[in-house]
Write a protein that binds this DNA or RNA. Structure first.
Lengths: 351, 351
DNA sequence: AGGTACTGTGGGAGCGCTCCCACAAGTGAT
DNA sequence: ATCACTTGTGGGAGCGCTCCCACAGTACCT
């Protein structure tokens, strides 16, 4: 019956105004204290902080967002189907790094998938509505319009894998080229000579860089690159299986495989088993990502570790910096940054 | 030098007011159209919609949140360390279901970890700030204060695994009891008699229900329950390994193991291997979750499938319903709902 | 005719904050 | 004493929306 009055008059959460009254100061001063402005005397600050504590005041985010035109939220945009997002540990690790870096901040993380067209549509709306202060783009394909859209809307963004060598967005990446070289050099050092490569999706720049690393490592060791030993995959298990089967058909005498991802390697392993090849006896296998799969595989998989968690952290750092020092677009192009983090080969029993 | 005027005067995004002017109607009418109110004539609606399209109008979320006191966002709260969140496919699947259900909505998803005390603190702030309209709680332990906090703040919430049989929050769960029974009955049907159980964390209600199912299945089949065959685990691989070692020590003659999770089963597998037991020859193994691990294990793991994705969907449905029909707290206790979804045994070669 | 009800509409008030101008008070140079 | 800053502070205006009251118009009773 009661029915409670209209829109939570008093009795609801305390407002800035109430804190101000309690502390015996003006609204502006409380706002300054809340936002850590230096232009407040010690005594006043203490008084306000006491009032805040007593009242259990928490600023209203919506009001702040409206008045200040910022949201204190960033979005992690994944242009892949959710399925892949979770299937590949890459994303989880990334998310972990992002989460860790964000924990020191007031920023909230929005997780957004842009897989279907409808979702993309809605994403565009969110971005247009400036519902977030910045965007983290993960695993974007070369032809994706998303980055340009962000640029147009003038929303700070950081991309995890640059789309090309001329990436215009701030980017963070691991050393795909170097990682691939490490893998191939390792196989060469183990005495393997006919080393195949199952690539990642060819429209992913990182996959291209891994191919480059693979080729250069072979060449610099004085070997010719046999293009029949290179088979395109797509980072999936099924793709790895298919590619491996194709390779075995073409080059039955191959003695090693460098797969562009652990998941791909898992697929390759199946195909190798079916073909009766032993690992690493007949064929050595090296993956990429050093994910949980690598440790669970039988035999355990040698793999190239990317510091993905660190990449997540880096992305946040860069994004927050971009958000912090928004300035005329003109001068910004000059300070684009591209961070590349080193990889590491984790040797296990598959090679 | 330009400097652009003050706070994005005009030239920025169009506002409600501008749409109204363009359509030749009042602000209220535009608002009604935007929010799908039925009290608008067809002609007016069309005019407004045209204006919206022409101007590319997108409502300002912050303003709406401030005025209407809602956020159109919900939080998925995970009181586990991020590590576990990603290690266990349970969460990924859940998140997928949640994402899918949310895709039909205007709601945004916030992913929040409440692992450390500091994060909990911040989470409490968010909730207090009513930054979300509702909360999804995943895998909460029996003694967690979070649910009560939510109740106190009067924030709609749905919990994934009820904390006890008397759960007060709306909950969604899979049939842990039934799933465990399926597993044990399957092992019995396969002729196994000394069936061990590695439990989950004992402070998780679902783990208790699985133990109940295990016991009842044995009893109803006319077997006594040998408590030495029950060893507590904690859903982790390491826990599974330890538990398995303990079981082998106590009951070297056991011929089957029902593990409370696939990850646990993976640990058990290692311990069994080390002890020289063959799977399923010497010991049959059944897991729980039917995660990717189950398919990748060698031998492939028989496992109880929970419709986790569906659970995610259900949670969203229930939560949205709760958010939609907010009403005096008194009358609400009566309509709490507890959804339980069926499990399914997926037979593979480990049993 | 006058009442009563409903439909569609305009626009004031107000959500809780930030921004910024105004101004008091203090400090030092002239 | 005057001017010119600097420092700390109060409070008006306004962010873009929703809510709701007021009211014109129409329809259907008495």
């Amino acid at each position: 019956m009661a029915g409670h009055g209209a829109r939570g008059r008093s009795g609801g959460r305390p407002t800035l105004e109430e804190v101000a009254a309690r502390a015996g100061v003006g609204r502006g001063t409380v706002s300054r204290v809340i936002n850590g402005s230096p232009r407040v005397s010690e005594a006043t600050r203490a008084a306000v902080e006491a009032a805040v504590a007593e009242l259990g005041y928490v600023p209203n985010t919506a009001a702040r967002a409206l008045a200040a035109n910022r949201t204190d939220a960033i979005a992690l945009v994944v242009p892949e189907p959710e399925t892949r997002f979770f299937a590949e540990p890459y994303f989880s690790d990334m998310l972990r790094g992002v989460g860790a870096a964000l924990a020191d901040t007031e920023m909230q993380l929005l997780l957004t998938f842009a897989s279907s067209d409808r979702k993309r549509q809605r994403l565009a709306q969110y971005l247009a509505a400036h519902r977030v202060d910045g965007v983290l783009l993960v695993s974007v394909h070369a032809d994706d319009p998303l980055p340009d859209m962000l640029a147009q809307l003038d929303i700070p963004a950081v991309i995890s894998g640059p789309r090309s060598a001329e990436e215009t967005l701030t980017s963070v990446d691991s050393d795909n080229y170097g990682g691939a070289r490490q893998a191939v050099e390792h196989l060469l050092a183990r005495g393997r000579r006919r080393i195949a490569h199952i690539t990642g999706r060819l429209d992913v720049y990182g996959a291209q860089r891994r191919i480059d690393g693979y080729r250069d490592a072979l060449r610099e060791a004085g070997h010719e690159v046999d293009e029949l030993l290179v088979e395109p995959g797509d980072f999936t298990e099924e793709g790895g299986r298919r590619a491996m089967a194709a390779l075995l058909e073409r080059r039955p005498d191959l003695d090693a495989v460098f797969a562009a991802s652990d998941v791909t390697a898992a697929g390759a392993r199946h195909a190798l088993r079916e073909a009766g090849r032993r690992i690493p006896g007949d064929v050595a296998l090296v993956g990429y990502d050093d994910s949980a799969i690598a440790r669970h595989m039988d035999p355990q998989l040698t793999s190239v570790r990317q510091p993905i968690e660190e990449m997540g952290r880096s992305m946040i750092d860069l994004l927050l910096a971009e958000i912090a020092d928004r300035r005329p677009a003109v001068s910004r192009a000059l300070e684009r940054r591209h961070v590349v983090l080193p990889t590491e080969l984790v040797e296990r029993s598959s090679s």
